[in-house]
Nucleic acid binder design. Structure first.
Lengths: 233, 233
DNA sequence: AAATATTTGTCCGTATGTATC
DNA sequence: TGATACATACGGACAAATATT
């Protein structure tokens, strides 16, 4: 753990330093951090500042502090953040949400070719099952969204791209946070689009698959997203 | 803002209380919280405990504290989510790093058309200046990386896509954190690639621009990333 | 423009409760 | 049981940044 430079606020730098320390030293869940006093000395900050950083980590579930024992690293998850972050759904100002859907769209269309060739038949069966769940939960927005999410997860997980998976998870989590007040009309209309995707996969027809993906992202909440066009076509 | 019960750790209860206060009173982005002293009195906790709660919120991007002014509620942003998701997933290991660069490549190639038409001449001048800085800092990896980063930031910021900006920032942050020790040789070779991009922009030639972008991402650390192919070409 | 007040930033000291040996 | 190590929590003090007069 190296000392701190001066630029940002101390507790923010300290947060980053401790986070870096965990990664650099390969600390796994259960491993103990140095004590508060040690870290204060190493980083050259007061105990208050250090605690503001550590308590933030504890609140977010990155570490767990225990008197008499120390502070242990925990399995990292963004769940707490997603459950506690404040979503301000200012009327008409959901631009960031559309931007996020736009990014998801770009990523899915960018990686769909690799996904196509990485898919096994069992994955396609999972997707088929998700479509069935969509039919069943036509009146349950939450269940429908879960099926939708599982559908796309099943499509891209076989790629084995962990960073892509994590980003998608984050986007879907935010989606759920915002989805609370959305209506169900456009949900049902997306079922045939998913069906077309699965059918193309079952037929192992990439052209049809790509076209179905494009159609899937060309409606509803994705309309305001930017179009996906080839640069040298 | 009402007083606190005793059960969980104090700063966690305090966090919930403040969050609840924001919701109950319908505070919107820009609105100020009560001062630290006021909240300490109302909640019956010490200033340290209160700050541990507030600083947690600030680190998550829920509020922003400013000396002499107060602590204001902030609009939702993906900054914190992206930063931490990438940081903990990439974590200095090779495969995730390449996956991350692959994602950056996909995003830049996906959005370059919109960027092209959103750019003003002043933006292109900025990029030209970044290329000049690259020449000057051929022996200074850190300065070079900053110029590189500024170049790509100048290219995509005019889009006004805040989520894309957040994601790009997060990627560059990981890049700066973990890549400083292994990249001197291929830095210089990337200068002409950036030059080609700027020249195409100055000539307002989209084809040349797109080609230069493709070339830019077809080497070095991007090689292991997946190729960018059109789905129906 | 300058002085003053307000508010957060940072540090220190001390006492207490809890886990470990 | 006792001793030690550690986090929890409180209060006070001054510095730095901003707003106000």
């Amino acid at each position: 753990m190296r000392a701190i430079k001066k630029e940002d606020k101390l507790y923010i730098q300290t947060f980053r330093e401790i986070r870096s320390y965990i990664i650099r030293n390969g600390l796994k869940p259960g491993d103990l951090l140095p004590t508060e006093m040690e870290m204060c000395q190493t980083l050259g900050v007061s105990r208050n500042v250090l605690r503001e950083a550590i308590k933030s980590m504890e609140l977010m579930g990155m570490v767990q502090a225990c008197p008499g024992r120390g502070t242990a690293v925990r399995e990292f998850s963004m769940d707490f953040v997603f459950q506690n972050v404040l979503f301000f759904n200012v009327a008409g100002e959901d631009k960031p949400v559309h931007e996020m859907f736009g990014i998801r769209r770009m990523l899915e269309l960018s990686y769909m070719r690799q996904a196509f060739y990485a898919l096994e038949s069992t994955d396609v069966e999972k997707m088929r099952d998700c479509v069935r769940r969509m039919h069943e939960s036509a009146r349950d927005d939450l269940a429908f969204t879960r099926a939708d999410r599982d559908f796309h997860t099943a499509l891209f997980r076989p790629l084995g791209n962990s960073v892509l998976d994590s980003l998608m998870d984050a986007i879907w989590a935010v989606d759920e946070g915002f989805e609370l007040e959305k209506k169900s009309p456009h949900l049902a209309s997306s079922i045939p689009k998913h069906e077309a995707i699965v059918e193309a996969l079952e037929a192992y027809d990439y052209r049809a698959f790509a076209r179905a993906m494009e159609v899937h992202f060309s409606s509803g909440k994705y309309l305001k997203a930017d179009s996906f066009e080839e640069y040298d076509s």
